[in-house]
């Protein structure tokens, strides 16, 4: 059991969790500022930002814990993240007026070097290869 946890958070997993943590931290900070100062400007975009931040926090914590249950929760949250970046990315290009202000997932994460689109794929790959 602890072997699994150690495997999950060592090697490439160490870097993966670090990147997740950076996204969790910056998405949370950004969303707190958006919700706190000008929520009415773009409610949908800002609620999505907050949701994305929560997903990153859950994924970070669960990957770090690394036991069987938390790995399952991590898998679900990473799948949600993947769906989020695909759906929001597509919507932000097709109906841009719905998102007057950018979220992490807008334009498939272009504002963040497309890392939001690549990160869930790497996360799922890592969870698979450490099973």
């Amino acid at each position: 059991m602890s072997d699994l946890a150690a495997r999950t958070r060592s090697g490439p997993g160490r870097l993966l969790i670090a990147v997740y943590a950076i996204f969790a931290l910056s998405a949370t900070a950004r969303s707190a500022v958006q919700l706190g100062t000008h929520f009415s400007r773009a409610p949908l975009a800002y609620l999505l930002s907050a949701f994305a931040a929560a997903v990153y926090v859950v994924a970070t914590v669960c990957l770090t814990r690394g036991n069987r249950t938390s790995r399952r929760i991590a898998t679900i949250s990473i799948l949600v993240e993947l769906a989020g970046v695909l759906v929001v990315g597509t919507l932000s290009l097709v109906v841009p007026h719905v998102f007057p202000d950018a979220t992490v997932w807008s334009d498939y994460g272009q504002g963040y070097g497309y890392i939001p689109a690549v990160l869930p794929l790497l996360g799922l790959w890592w969870l698979r290869s450490t099973r």
Binding site: G11, A18, I22
Partner: peptide, 22 residues
Amino acid sequence: PLAGFWALAERSRWGPAVMVVG
């Protein structure tokens, strides 16, 4: 500091990789 502590626990080249990203 977060990157520093997280990288220190790793006993392979992935430790400094965390520092690169941080």
